[in-house]
Design a protein around this nucleic acid. Sequence first.
DNA 1: ACAGTGACGGGACTTGGTCCCATCACCATA
DNA 2: TATGGTGATGGGACCAAGTCCCGTCACTGT
Lengths: 203, 203
Amino acid sequence: MSDGTKSRARTMGPMARWQPHAPERLLVAALELFEERGYENTTVIEITERAGLTKSTFFRHFRDKREVLFGGGAMSGLLATGIDTAPAGAAPLEAVAHALEVIGREAFTSDRREFSARRSAVIAANPELREREALKKLGLIATMTGALERRGVPDLTARVAAELGALAWEIAFERWRGTASRDDFAELARQALTQVRAACALC
Amino acid sequence: MSDGTKSRARTMGPMARWQPHAPERLLVAALELFEERGYENTTVIEITERAGLTKSTFFRHFRDKREVLFGGGAMSGLLATGIDTAPAGAAPLEAVAHALEVIGREAFTSDRREFSARRSAVIAANPELREREALKKLGLIATMTGALERRGVPDLTARVAAELGALAWEIAFERWRGTASRDDFAELARQALTQVRAACALC
DNA sequence: ACAGTGACGGGACTTGGTCCCATCACCATA
DNA sequence: TATGGTGATGGGACCAAGTCCCGTCACTGT
């Protein structure tokens, strides 16, 4: 950091005070480094150096080192609106299916497939990151449960439907990010939900 | 730590090199401090001082600060044997019910009720601890899924049954640790599982 | 022209966590 | 009785995560 021209624009135009998209640059740098040498062998300072920033800025954008991979926290809102906007007469799992379609349309678009796969691989390789992911999942289940209860679904039924929905999501996501399938997420989610419902009957 | 007599036996008998039960003493000290001033306002050194030990010893027994509340890792083994020893013809959820009974007999005995309640309250009050708990839960679900698959239950069915079993466990545990109920855990687990199964049919 | 704003730089500081080595009661064996 | 090994602990150096506070300076509106 002793180089004064560190992150100076490489263009010749009038100097912009800062390069734009700091959080995204940090995310890209972090993902690359985690892939190269692993999460625990990467320091926050190394991430910020690659992004042309500093430790202060990193922690201004992310609560902690893990959170850089979980910043896209729009999922919760999408799930809630997806359930809220489901047809009035829809059964709990149908409302969940509707939410998964919204997710597929708004978040799991095909242009983000490769990135999602890389991110998932990094997370799967590290217990700390899996831990954070598990907590996020709990939050999403709570969101779905709450949204279902607002539709008048009884407490326990809502909880079960949310849990089964989360399971279908996981299964669909596993398939979606796999290189083989070119289906879109909504289609895979519908299939997974149907299979989960069938498996439920065998319990 | 400059006091040479720090953790010297308070009895007059021949000096024992160390006070016994170091991990348990650390757990008790940690739980007390977390209750008094909260998890994040408690340092590891304060825990070790109350237990009459040092930081080195703490991290020799526990991987990190959170793990002091999650040391009793016998659950996984109990669950696995509980499912393995279920009657041969039992349906997946019946095998899970058998496992929950084993848990109730071996781990959630009534003399540990108050302690469990205190521990749960501390965990609920802190996101870091909830995060660790979420990861532990994933591990238990994986254990149950694996045990069910060894019984010949198909992949997805096992996963669903394990998930529903975990949900029933949570519900039963919430009720068990509540001050009102004097039922034993196995009974509450059976009820919860029945209710979950019923809710499942309404999805 | 000028003060306010807001994202960033930077450094001091606390704490979690790792590593390595010293200590010393206990124990087995001679 | 002597002697050497064992194993849980003490202790301190060290690194990285995360917090706090303050300075900088292009941009912006008046």
